[in-house]
Amino acid sequence: MTHLEQLEAESIHIIREVAAEFENPVMLYSVGKDSAVMLHLARKAFYPARPPFPLMHVDTTWKFREMIEFRDRIVDEYGFDLLIHVNQEGVKQGIDPFVHGSALHTDVMKTEGLKQALDKYKFDAAFGGARRDEEKSRAKERIFSFRTASHRWDPKNQRPELWNIYNARVQPGESIRAFPLSNWTELDVWQYIHLENIPIVPLYLAKERPVVERDGMLILVDDDRLKLRPGEKVQTKSVRFRTLGCYPLTGAVESTAATLPEIIQEMLLTRTSERQGRLIDHDQSGSMEKKKQEGYF
């Protein structure tokens, strides 16, 4: 078996284990490329049946418009159950990443939103598309990652994880985050998308798009909530995105790579990591570990 075939089989095994061992699992669907792969693997795992769990999107209300369109199209096409959760508290408070900054926005709309949703539906397991190669604290996380009833991750006290025998036991209120793509790299993901022809949000491919330069990042002018600051002007540039999140917090890269092989090529030749375009990781060293401890995915 090639390495991609091995990774695929491992992921399918994990997805089936979670479905079999938990009463109420959910797949967190973030609409990005990793989610696209995870969804594809879930379809494979249960073919010809549909995956026996719903998808859930924690919508921060600041996602790229094209992400939302894509999400609705995919869900429709494959007939998934999709739950959409928005932290209404946050909406009421008028949380705005342009005004309140990335940290507060992420904390309220994403982390809190996720916790609310998990509590509301009483999910005992949630799939996430995180990979260990993304970030140094993720490199340390188990495939079945235990969370306390208050959604905390204790990195110093993780359960041993032997072979591919996963401990799925939780008390009421506690849960497991399951990461079927743990051992995939960014290259693996792109190669697999290429090989398997998996649909992805077009934002990953380069196109002329309206952007403004702000704090060293190229921000897409996705709707009229982006207010130009003095001296800023909207430029049209050929850009694409290496990761997708909330549009005010996700920087575009200038690129002409409009096909999958081209973006893979660009990725391989680039000298920065994919997370560099994300504002939230830069806040402080070790910030991801802290966020994860507090319940961020």
């Binding site: 260990r132 190669d133 140094k136 340390k140 743990s182 051992n183 790299t185």
Partner: peptide, 8 residues
Amino acid sequence: TIDVAYRY
């Protein structure tokens, strides 16, 4: 080192 790190 406290816990195992996986690298690729």
